[in-house]
Simulated scan of single mutants.
Amino acid sequence: MALVAPQARAWRTSRTPRTGTRARTVRTPGTATVLTGAGLVLLPWVVVLAKTMPQTAEVSNWSTAWIGLDLMLAAGLTGTGMLVRRRDPRASPVAAATAALLVMDAWFDVTTSAGTGGQGMALLLAAGAELPLAVACAVVAARRPR
């Protein structure tokens, strides 16, 4: 901590809701800068990918990738449901991650099925299941824990 600038070491104290004891956290503006910078650096990389990626590709372990994603979704949805039922405040971050996975799953299902006989089913599942579940998870994630 001695190498950190004084303004980056600003302490914020607050009382924890259950015990009433003081908790100390460190503000880290450097983290915000790194994350923002990483996001901005990705933008030119997306342009490079858009110009250089092939339109088709043969992929090994295709089924493993999709099965793994569906297992993560099953764990996220089940975990979110169990935590919500118990009114556990950890439901919020689990729900946020699950919402992101559901949106990603819908995106890849629809885009990888374009021009195939499975596109209708992919659109139906996205509109009827994945995106509504993502919205439900986002609502859970946005709630303030009590």
Rank of each mutant, 00 (worst) to 15 (best):
P44G: 00
I67E: 12
C137Q: 15
G120S: 15
P17Q: 03
T78I: 02
S113Q: 02
T31H: 13
T116K: 03
T19K: 01
G120W: 02
T33E: 08
G20D: 01
A114F: 08
P132D: 11
A141G: 11
T64Q: 15
L133V: 04
G76R: 05
V4E: 13
A95I: 06
R146V: 12
T116G: 10
D70P: 00
A95F: 02
A38C: 11
V47N: 01
T78R: 06
L42W: 04
W66T: 06
R18L: 09
L69I: 10
Q119A: 02
R18A: 14
M72V: 12
L124W: 11
D105G: 01
D70I: 06
V135A: 12
G128W: 06
T111D: 10
V135I: 14
A138S: 14
R144M: 07
D109R: 10
A95E: 03
P132G: 04
D105K: 14
G30N: 10
R86Y: 05
P89T: 08
P93V: 13
V139A: 07
T16F: 03
S92P: 00
A142Y: 14
D70V: 07
R86P: 01
L124T: 09
G20M: 02
G128C: 04
L73S: 07
V94P: 05
W45P: 00
G39Q: 14
V135R: 15
A126N: 11
R85I: 00
D109G: 00
P6C: 02
T98S: 11
G20R: 10
M53N: 03
G117Q: 04
V84D: 09
P93C: 00
T28A: 15
Q119S: 07
V59I: 15
T25C: 02
A91F: 05
R87Q: 13
M82Q: 11
S63K: 11
G118S: 01
R18D: 11
A122Y: 06
G128I: 02
P145R: 10
R87K: 14
A106C: 07
V41W: 08
T16A: 13
T78G: 03
V4P: 00
A122D: 06
P93F: 09
P44T: 01
R90S: 13
P44Q: 05
V140D: 09
S14N: 07
L133R: 14
A96E: 12
S63V: 03
P17F: 06
P44K: 03
A134S: 10
L123N: 12
V135E: 09
G20P: 02
E58N: 11
T112G: 01
M1Y: 04
C137W: 02
R12M: 12
V59A: 06
R22E: 13
G118C: 02
A95L: 04
P17N: 00
A65G: 08
M53R: 10
T78K: 11
A138F: 08
A57I: 04
A65W: 01
G81R: 09
R85G: 03
L102Q: 13
R144S: 09
A10K: 15
P44Y: 04
W66M: 13
A5T: 03
V59H: 09
